[in-house]
Amino acid sequence: MSLDPRQVYWRSNLRFLAILLLVWFVVSFGCGILFVDQLDQIRIGGFGLGFWFAQQGSIYVFVLLIWVYVWLMNRADKDYEARCAEQAEAAE
């Protein structure tokens, strides 16, 4: 008996959300606000690293996060369809 495809799909979605939102929190609230002064000790060109995260880096990461999620979920959608088809076959 294989697992319910709906549950598998929803659980993997929740796992992706937890990981991506953790990154989201770390780059914005973490690097851009909580640890900004510590990170500013490190310089990249004219930027302190904390300042760079607050005004540039966090935004780049946000864009990446959405596209990673798009890619992960498109893959999960295909997996879901395959599992559904498998289950339908098994039922016949």
Partner: peptide
């Protein structure tokens, strides 16, 4: 900057 872009995530 972070508030008005991070919301899209």
């Amino acid at each position: 900057l972070m508030g008005w872009t991070g919301g899209y995530v």
